[in-house]
Write a protein that binds this DNA or RNA. Structure first.
Length: 425
RNA sequence: GUGGGUGUAGCUCAGGUGGUUAGAGCACCAGAUUGUGGCUCUGGGGGCCGUGGGUUCGAGUCCCAUCAUCCACCCCA
């Protein structure tokens, strides 16, 4: 297909019939955030490239091979945001939002961009609903953020999700553990798979998460990070888990869970939907206590998550959580005989002004074809403008469901229809 | 970046071993006697057979390349 009639790879159009699902998801996100006390923030879809290099980390996959980076006409290097935490932190620093009351609780919904190979549940332009909290390192906030994510999914009718929690420690204890791990793996490194050989240098923690049988054998019996946390990180982790238990949120501790972004500290979590296939991670998040300072803002702890909305919609579809979208037409105004369409337009406009979703024919159709069209569009009532009735100031109103029709005075039409429509609901 | 599957009508798909004008169902439009939907019947519009090369007298069909798409790896939401 020609490029002119094809959306770019990894992007897609949301068409009528599909978009209603997204409207519902966005509405539920806003509702949940209102209940939890989060205010909405909207940041630009592109930022200075430097922000993501610093914020996300230069060695991460996202930064090193997945960014949409370009130069503008002023020769600035800009990047379509691959995630939004760094950008929200930037906005908080820029507008000195930290000077207000804390904790600062924010949420966002919007498109993100990563140059990835598309597959089920993965796109180059995808959408995230996320929250970010700044100003507190208190463990119950970690639990609240996770509870908010679960609350959101539950409100959409998605069940069977798994919440996996881990602690990746702080730079100090994670660094020590990382070194110890490399030591322990040193001699066995040649027995690892090709991917893990690369991970050995870049991100050895990930080797523990490899699915390959031979790597599993190599890593069996090795100590896990959660057993090697420093005092502060360990205590924090315990308190987070206790708070989660207190709110009654089911979870599994997964010591192998590693996040791909550099800024995470302490709590890391992920929500999995078993209904989704390979890309089953529907939400990921964690604490980032050093990010704000790293970006040049004040030292200030933070925590948040990002939920993938494409995957959320897929999970809802798998759960059969969508109702039929309502029709866009309450009333169709048809013309019979020699009655002109301008007459119909006048009546349609009156009905619309009265709050009734009304429409008419624009295709020069016969009466029969007009009814057929109205039926297909889901019109509940038809107003038929006939020459003879109009002469005495009346029209015919036909109830499509019941198949009945009545003659109504034109002056009473809007009120009459409103009553009928109300009854049917 | 790597691997595998698939590209024929708007959609879902047929089109043994290459052989005239490429089919079906659904959808769309019209009609079945004057101004009445759904069901049924009849008719109609629609296809550079993804694209470009090649083999051949002849390619939707075989070969190569390319693009797209799907799935998986990687990574992540």
């Amino acid at each position: 297909m020609a490029v002119l009639t094809k959306a770019p790879r990894g992007t897609r159009d949301l068409l009528p019939g599909e978009i209603e699902k997204w409207q519902l998801v966005e509405k539920k996100a806003a509702e949940a955030c209102r209940l939890f006390g989060y205010g909405e923030i909207r940041t630009p879809v592109f930022e200075h490239t430097e922000l993501f290099l610093r914020g996300v980390g230069e060695t991460t996959d996202i930064v090193s091979k997945e960014m949409y980076t370009f130069r503008d006409r002023g020769d600035r290097s800009l990047t379509l945001r691959p995630e939004n935490t760094a950008a929200v932190a930037r906005a908080v620093a820029e507008h000195r939002l930290y000077a207000g009351v804390q904790p600062l609780k924010l949420y966002y919904v919007g498109p993100m961009f990563r140059y990835d190979r598309p597959q089920a549940g993965r796109y180059r332009q995808f959408h995230q609903f996320g929250v970010e909290v700044f100003g507190t390192g208190e463990p119950t906030m970690d639990a609240e953020v996770m509870a908010l994510a679960m609350f959101f999914f539950r409100s959409l009718g998605i069940a069977g999700l798994e919440l996996r929690v881990n602690s990746v420690g702080c730079p100090a204890c994670r660094g020590e553990y990382r070194q110890a791990l490399q030591e322990r793996l040193k001699e066995k490194a040649n027995r690892l798979c090709a991917d893990c050989t690369e991970r050995y240098e870049k991100n050895p923690l990930r080797i523990l998460d490899c699915k390959k049988e031979k790597c599993r054998e190599v890593t069996e019996g090795l100590p896990v990070l959660t057993d090697s946390l420093c005092g502060e990180c360990g205590d924090h982790f315990k308190l987070v888990l206790a708070a989660l238990a207190e709110v009654g949120e089911a979870f599994a501790v997964d010591p192998r869970l590693v996040r791909g972004l550099d800024y995470y500290t302490k709590t890391a979590f992920e929500i999995i939907s078993p209904a989704l296939g390979a890309q089953s991670s529907i939400c990921g998040g964690g604490r980032y206590d050093n990010l704000m300072e790293e970006l040049g803002g004040p030292a200030m702890p933070g925590i948040g998550f990002a939920a993938g909305l494409e995957r959320t919609v897929l999970a809802m579809e798998a759960a059969g959580a969508f109702a039929e979208p309502p029709g866009l037409m309450d009333v169709f105004v048809a013309t019979a005989g020699a009655v002109g369409q301008e007459k119909a337009l006048g009546i349609v406009m009156n009905l619309r002004s009265a709050g009734i979703a009304a429409d008419k024919d624009y295709m020069e159709r016969s009466l029969k074809a007009q009814l057929k069209y109205a039926d297909k569009k889901g019109a509940r009532l038809i107003v038929i403008l006939g020459e003879e009735e109009l002469q005495v100031g009346a029209v015919t109103v036909r109830d499509m469901g019941a198949g009945r029709q009545e003659t109504v005075r034109l002056a009473d039409l809007a009120g009459y229809l409103a009553v009928l429509l109300k009854e049917e609901r």
